[in-house]
C-alpha cells in the first residue's frame, strides 16, 4: 500500500507544480512507482512542466465521470521513467466537476498499486482544494519566504488541521541565501517558527528551474542545478524519514564552480 501526498500552498505561483514534478521524478529516479495527479481543473499545467502535453487523451474528469474503463486508461507514461505516470486534469471543465468523495475513492484505488501518489493542489481554498486533500494521507505545504505566501500557508495549515490531516510538512521554496544573510529576507528559521511545522526541505532560488520547465524536464534530473540537488535531498527524506534534515544548497561561487568542474565525475551520484 502506497502513500497519497497532497502538495498545496494557498497562494498561487509559489511552486506547487514545479515541486510536484520534481519530487515525482526524483522518486521515480530512486526506483519508486509514482503517479502525479494534476488536481487543478480548468488550469492544467503539470503536463507542460513534465513535457507530456502532447500525449493527453483522457483526463481526471473523464475518469470520475466513468468515460474510461479504469483510471489507468487516462494515465500518461513519463518519457524518462517507466515507473512514473501522470493523471492530467481537464482544461475545459470547472472545479465543481469532481466531488471530494470521488477523489477519495480514486486516490484509494491508486495507492493500492503505486508507492507514491502526489496530488498537485490548485491555489485557493475552495472546491479544488477540498478535492485535492480529500484522499491524501499526508500534506506538503509549499511556501516562499514572502509575507503573503507565508500568511496563506498558515491559513492552509489551519484548514488541513481542521480536516484531521496528520503529517503536514513544509517546503520553503525560492530561498535566496545571500538576501537572508543580508537580513533582507525571512530565513528558514523565521518561517518555520511562524508556521510551527516540520521542515521537509528548502529549495534555493535557481534560474535552472526556468530552463528546466522551458524544456519540460524537471530540474531534479539536472546535475548542475542547486534546486535539483535540494529536491534530491527531499526525495531521500520522503523515502526514508530518518534521513538527516535539509541543508541549504549554497551558491558555490566561482571557486566552488571551478572545484565542481574538476570533480564532476566523482560528485555526480544522484539519489539512490
Amino acid at each position: 500500500m502506497g502513500k497519497v501526498i497532497v502538495i498545496t500552498s494557498g497562494k498561487g505561483g509559489v511552486g506547487k507544480t514545479t515541486c510536484t514534478a520534481n519530487l515525482g521524478s526524483g522518486l521515480a529516479l530512486a526506483g519508486k512507482s509514482v503517479i502525479l495527479v494534476d488536481a487543478d481543473i480548468g488550469l492544467r499545467n503539470l503536463d507542460l512542466v513534465m513535457g507530456l502535453e502532447n500525449r493527453i487523451v483522457f483526463d481526471l474528469v473523464d475518469v470520475v465521470e466513468g468515460k474510461c474503463r479504469s483510471y489507468r486508461q487516462a494515465l500518461i507514461k513519463d518519457k524518462r521513467f517507466d515507473n512514473l505516470f501522470m493523471m492530467p486534469s481537464a482544461q475545459s471543465k470547472d472545479k465543481d466537476a469532481v466531488k471530494p468523495e470521488q477523489m477519495r475513492d480514486l486516490c484509494q484505488e491508486m495507492k493500492e498499486s503505486f508507492d507514491f501518489v502526489l496530488v498537485d493542489c490548485p491555489a485557493g481554498i475552495e472546491m479544488g482544494f477540498k478535492n485535492a486533500i480529500a484522499g491524501a494521507d499526508e500534506a506538503i505545504v509549499v511556501t516562499n519566504p514572502e509575507v503573503s505566501a507565508v500568511r496563506d500557508a498558515d491559513r492552509i495549515v489551519g484548514l488541513l488541521e481542521a480536516n484531521e490531516m496528520s503529517g503536514i510538512k513544509l517546503i520553503l521554496n525560492r530561498v535566496k541565501a545571500d538576501m537572508v544573510r543580508r537580513g533582507q529576507m525571512l530565513s528558514v528559521q523565521d518561517v518555520q517558527e511562524i508556521l510551527n511545522l516540520d521542515l521537509l526541505g528548502m529549495i534555493p532560488e535557481d534560474e535552472r528551474i526556468i530552463h528546466a520547465s522551458n524544456r519540460g524536464e524537471p530540474a531534479v534530473l539536472d546535475r548542475n542545478s542547486r534546486a535539483g540537488e535540494a529536491y534530491r535531498q527531499v526525495v531521500r527524506c520522503l523515502i526514508d524519514p530518518s534521513t538527516p534534515g535539509p541543508s541549504l544548497v549554497e551558491d558555490p561561487g566561482l571557486m566552488g564552480k571551478l572545484r565542481r568542474f574538476f570533480t564532476v565525475g566523482l560528485g555526480s551520484q544522484v539519489a539512490q
Binding site: R151, V180, R182, G183, Q184, M185, L186, I194
Partner: peptide, 11 residues
C-alpha cells in the same frame, strides 16, 4: 536595507 525583521513582526 534589513527588512527581514519587519516581515517577521508584521506576519
Amino acid at each position: 536595507d534589513q527588512s527581514r525583521a519587519a516581515a517577521r513582526d508584521r506576519l
